[in-house]
């Protein structure tokens, strides 16, 4: 494979995590090269969110290691803050700052961390907001926006730090069905521009369209890593097949109009 020749931007090796007595992640090995898009899927409670949260050390892990461009990432390391600056994260529940306007949400990081002046930061923020098609909402506060709009602001906020890697933690599962598409469109265009991405999502259409690899998880372990063609053609383990058909059925049930 061509990608395997490059040095990976992110390496996860032998990662184990326990929540109390619950073994949440079991010996996870995963690496991603620049420009690669990985979709992580699996039933709920399988540990897929926990992986991305370990990547920028929102969760502690007990054994194994996570390395971003060779630097160790864990909750106690000195480089934690610089790692987080280089990794963008989009949450399931948006987590915009309600006391700041849309543009202040986007410029907070650049101004306070990258020490960019207000004018330049706002200029760049407006470009990003235009990219997520929200330039006209810049002066509103988050509570005045719809869920889909809020999530797009959250993406712009993460992009404002010019991250090397973007993490998406179920970005569409808290949205009403009609808003899912506007967020997926933004993510897709981001993917086409060459952003390195790890997406935890159940959106199989998105996975098929952009993923270079699909990682299927269950019970805290990676059960299957496959190319999308192979994954969707049923060339995978029984649990993954069962999961795919289950997700597809749910999609059909929630959106009867879609083919």
């Amino acid at each position: 494979m061509v990608l395997a020749a490059q040095r990976p931007i992110l390496e996860i090796a032998g990662l184990n995590k326990w929540f109390g007595a619950m073994h949440a992640l079991r010996d996870i090995d995963l690496s991603i090269t620049a420009g690669e898009k990985i979709v992580v899927c699996g039933p709920s409670g399988s540990g897929k969110s926990t992986i991305v949260r370990c990547v920028n050390a929102l969760e502690r892990y007990q054994t194994g290691e996570v390395r971003l461009e060779g630097r160790l990432v864990n909750a106690d390391c000195d480089s934690l803050l610089s790692v987080r600056r280089e990794v963008g994260m989009v949450f399931q529940s948006f987590n915009l700052f309600p006391h700041l306007s849309v543009i202040d949400n986007v410029t907070l990081g650049p101004r306070k961390l990258l020490k960019i002046g207000r004018e330049e930061a706002e200029h760049r923020a407006m470009e990003l907001l235009a990219r997520v098609r929200l330039a006209d909402q810049a002066r509103k506060v988050p509570s005045q926006l719809s869920g889909g709009q809020q999530q797009r602001v959250a993406i712009a906020r993460a992009l404002a730090m010019r991250p090397k890697l973007m993490l998406f933690d179920e970005p569409t599962s808290a949205l009403d069905p009609e808003m899912v598409k506007e967020v997926l469109d933004v993510m897709m265009s981001l993917a086409h521009e060459g952003m390195t991405m790890i997406c935890v999502t159940h959106e199989m259409g998105f996975a098929r369209a952009v993923a270079d690899r699909i990682v299927f998880m269950a019970d805290g372990a990676i059960q299957e890593t496959a190319l999308p063609e192979a994954f969707f053609c049923g060339d995978c383990c029984a649990r993954a097949r069962q999961f795919i058909s289950h997700v597809m059925k749910e999609r059909l049930a929630s959106q009867p109009g879609e083919p």
């Binding site: 494979m1 395997a4 184990n16 326990w18 109390g20 007595a21 073994h23 079991r26 010996d27 090995d29 995963l30 007990q62 690899r213 019970d219 805290g220 372990a221 990676i222 059960q223 299957e224 890593t225 496959a226 192979a230 383990c237």
Partner: peptide
């Protein structure tokens, strides 16, 4: 690169945690 399934529920984990 296809499957990396080396999860063994009995190795270490919980018991080590409790100890």
């Amino acid at each position: 690169m296809s499957t990396i399934a080396n999860s063994n529920p009995t190795d270490g984990g919980p018991s080590r945690y409790h100890a």
